[in-house]
Write a protein that binds this DNA or RNA. Sequence first.
DNA 1: AAATGGCGTTAACCTAGATTAATAAATCTA
DNA 2: TAGATTTATTAATCTAGGTTAACGCCATTT
Lengths: 167, 167
Amino acid sequence: MEIKKVAKGEFVQKPDELKHKIIHVVTGLLRMYLVDDDGKEHIYMFAPEGWTLSDFAAIAESKKSIFYIDAIENSQIEIITKGVDEKIPRTLDEYTDQTIEMMGRRIATLQNRVVMLLSFSALDRYKQFIATYPDIVNRVPQRMIASYLGITPQALSKIRGQKNTKR
Amino acid sequence: MEIKKVAKGEFVQKPDELKHKIIHVVTGLLRMYLVDDDGKEHIYMFAPEGWTLSDFAAIAESKKSIFYIDAIENSQIEIITKGVDEKIPRTLDEYTDQTIEMMGRRIATLQNRVVMLLSFSALDRYKQFIATYPDIVNRVPQRMIASYLGITPQALSKIRGQKNTKR
DNA sequence: AAATGGCGTTAACCTAGATTAATAAATCTA
DNA sequence: TAGATTTATTAATCTAGGTTAACGCCATTT
């Protein structure tokens, strides 16, 4: 396990790297995102202090990751590196309590995210985001929140205008 | 743990029940879905043989579930029931290898789903679905696939027409 | 076999959010 | 601190997919 400082804007991972990374954020704030065929960024998740980032699907399927990971703030992180073909632990005693807890939280988060993307309007997604991650809201630019919500910065700007006049 | 037969169309869970359920599918096919404020159904996941269904977020947050679960085919299932306030296991030795494996697969699946919902067009979502779940495609009505993809049955029908003529 | 109800398809119209573009404010950099 | 770059906002226009509605096809029930 490697401890590292990353400056704002610095990359920790790029797609197609030959090693998988599991990144634990000690201080600061990172983001994990993909770039689609049209060159558009889509933020998969933010990771503030205490969160862990990794491409579970890539590790599970022994594929290369499609995600970029970079720092939104100067951060301190711990990195565990594994070969692309290295298998996920197969039995219980290869796991730690901490890993299990992280997995449970991750499933709950992803589940809520899918429900939101499936059934909420852009406005409701935004409301839920600020209710769920009030601290993140003030630490990242609007356009990244828009990207996380699956809408354009322009649409988010419009929504915020409406939201304020409607009260 | 309770073993049960459920007939096609029969409910296994409805929202707001006072017990959480973890459902393992032995044979057959179930679906887990929610109904939004406009009365529209959104399918969260399908569960054929070997899959496990549960509302992780509700269990993690000790809340009541928002999901319906019912049988698409006559099925045989195993149900584990827990009180709504009953805590998720806290330490490793309360887990089984099987549970851990299920969690890993679930994260990978959900991650792929979020990426798809964030960055794919309706057509690409459909293509990815039939590539990933070829067997499910022929076991569920189109309208349910549409619901899973986050589009209307009419939109899916149109897409399928295009897809065929474009070759 | 008629009636009922679910399902898939097609088509006309509509709307939430995307796209494009222009501007101003904030932030970075030399 | 001047210039360059990024960000947020507003507005005009466009479009993927939603909505509504009608029709035909199977199944199931009577």
